[in-house]
Simulated scan of single mutants.
Amino acid sequence: MNINSSSLSVIVPVYKAEKYLRRCVDSILAQTYRNFELILIDDGSPDNSGSICDEYMQKDKRVKVFHQENQGVSSSRNLGIEQAQGEWITFIDSDDWVDADFLEKFQIENAEPDTFTIQGFTFNFENHPDKDFLFSYYKGCKFPISSDKEIAQYDILRNGYPFAKLYHKAKLQQYHIRFNTAISIHEDHAFVWEYLCHTENIKLVQSSSYHYEKKEGESLSNKNYPSATWLAASESLLASLSILQAKCHLEGTHYLKETYTSYGLEQTMKAIYCINRTNYQQVVSSARGKYLLFSQFFLTKTPKQKIVLYLLKQKWSNRLLFFFIHLSNILSTNLRIGSHNTEKTRPL
């Protein structure tokens, strides 16, 4: 096979992955669909990941390896896009693996540039296989992106994982769709949504051949990010969502409110939770600028959120507003700690 004639480029960002990397790469090289190149991006791994990548490149001509100083997963994926020679691109994470029919399920020979092909996948819990479950196991179907019922029925906008999807390289180049290296949270979702903005049809594949490894103790809610990070993620998501709500004909739907709440406005709310004396001007101004969106789409779930929205509505100075929001954050934290301690000391 002439590697330059590959129909598909499989991009795998690699960082501190020596424990899982062989499982991942072996599963890709064992695919029943053979006309692909495998691009491994070693993002300055301090372990043996880079050497393992080079080892596979020596053994299989389909494997290409690129080494760079550590710049993050978004930079790695972007480098993979630039180096890809295939007409189509798919992403696989280095700690995940795929069944032998994963690439074949995309049916590359029938793929169309204006159609976004999406597979379901399996959540595999490290050390707890009893918890494994199928995520978005779709029935095979195709529909225009303007079909609001199907968009909501299959929850398309909430599936922001970049893997188990097929991207057209020319479209990525034409619209310069890349992972935003300026944000470190929800950058995957922003990338998928930007691609959706330039898509006309959705094709869902009845497959769960991709296995996403959920690590022990891994949770986005356990990570702390500064307000600026949350705001940057919010801006990126809202920019695409403002286009998709019209493109998908979602105006007036509850699904649109759910999506705005979870992906765009919730991030601004979390920025408010991280407010302090050095950033309150930026955070409050940004949140007030989104108040119309909050009033139209945000589904409040907690008393704290209701208090914050009430305070944003008031025509107070940013300094006074900061004082009350900061106070509500302190009270909320104390109440949560008190409730937790009560649970721990409750007699059996």
Score class of each variant (00 low, 15 high):
residue 114 D to L: 09
residue 229 T to V: 11
residue 128 H to W: 09
residue 323 F to R: 11
residue 310 Y to W: 06
residue 24 C to Y: 00
residue 27 S to M: 07
residue 102 F to G: 15
residue 106 F to C: 06
residue 320 L to N: 14
residue 298 F to E: 12
residue 6 S to M: 05
residue 53 C to H: 00
residue 128 H to R: 15
residue 275 I to S: 04
residue 113 P to D: 07
residue 135 F to Y: 15
residue 60 D to Y: 11
residue 314 Q to F: 14
residue 239 A to D: 14
residue 203 K to L: 06
residue 83 Q to S: 07
residue 318 N to T: 08
residue 64 K to C: 09
residue 275 I to D: 02
residue 42 D to E: 11
residue 297 F to P: 06
residue 58 Q to R: 09
residue 309 L to S: 11
residue 55 E to Y: 07
residue 131 K to L: 15
residue 79 L to P: 02
residue 22 R to S: 06
residue 319 R to P: 12
residue 84 A to M: 01
residue 156 I to H: 04
residue 212 Y to G: 02
residue 196 L to P: 05
residue 22 R to E: 13
residue 239 A to K: 10
residue 70 N to D: 12
residue 133 F to M: 13
residue 41 I to L: 14
residue 105 K to M: 08
residue 322 F to G: 11
residue 283 V to D: 02
residue 13 P to M: 01
residue 82 E to W: 00
residue 288 R to S: 09
residue 214 K to S: 09
residue 320 L to K: 13
residue 57 M to T: 06
residue 237 L to N: 03
residue 179 F to I: 10
residue 288 R to F: 14
residue 21 L to N: 04
residue 208 S to L: 11
residue 143 F to N: 02
residue 269 M to A: 05
residue 344 K to T: 08
residue 232 A to P: 05
residue 270 K to M: 15
residue 46 P to S: 12
residue 53 C to Q: 02
residue 234 S to Y: 04
residue 47 D to K: 08
residue 238 L to P: 07
residue 275 I to V: 11
residue 240 S to C: 12
residue 105 K to W: 02
residue 29 L to T: 03
residue 52 I to E: 05
residue 48 N to V: 08
residue 272 I to L: 14
residue 96 D to C: 15
residue 135 F to C: 10
residue 15 Y to A: 09
residue 257 K to T: 08
residue 311 L to P: 04
residue 97 W to Y: 15
residue 142 K to F: 04
residue 12 V to C: 08
residue 251 E to I: 12
residue 268 T to Q: 14
residue 198 H to Y: 09
residue 33 Y to F: 10
residue 258 E to K: 13
residue 100 A to M: 14
residue 198 H to P: 04
residue 300 T to Y: 01
residue 243 I to M: 05
residue 69 E to K: 12
residue 75 S to W: 04
residue 52 I to C: 04
residue 91 F to M: 00
residue 164 A to E: 00
residue 271 A to L: 11
residue 183 I to D: 02
residue 270 K to D: 14
residue 10 V to G: 00
residue 277 R to T: 14
residue 49 S to W: 01
residue 178 R to V: 00
residue 126 E to P: 03
residue 34 R to N: 07
residue 321 L to S: 11
residue 198 H to R: 13
residue 317 S to M: 08
residue 285 S to C: 03
residue 53 C to W: 03
residue 168 H to M: 00
residue 20 Y to T: 14
residue 292 L to I: 07
residue 159 N to V: 06
residue 179 F to D: 01
residue 156 I to Y: 03
residue 270 K to Q: 11
residue 265 L to D: 01
residue 41 I to M: 04
residue 339 S to C: 08
residue 170 A to M: 15
residue 251 E to T: 10
residue 49 S to A: 11
residue 288 R to G: 13
residue 18 E to D: 10
residue 210 Y to W: 01
residue 172 L to G: 05
residue 181 T to W: 03
residue 145 I to A: 04
residue 257 K to G: 11
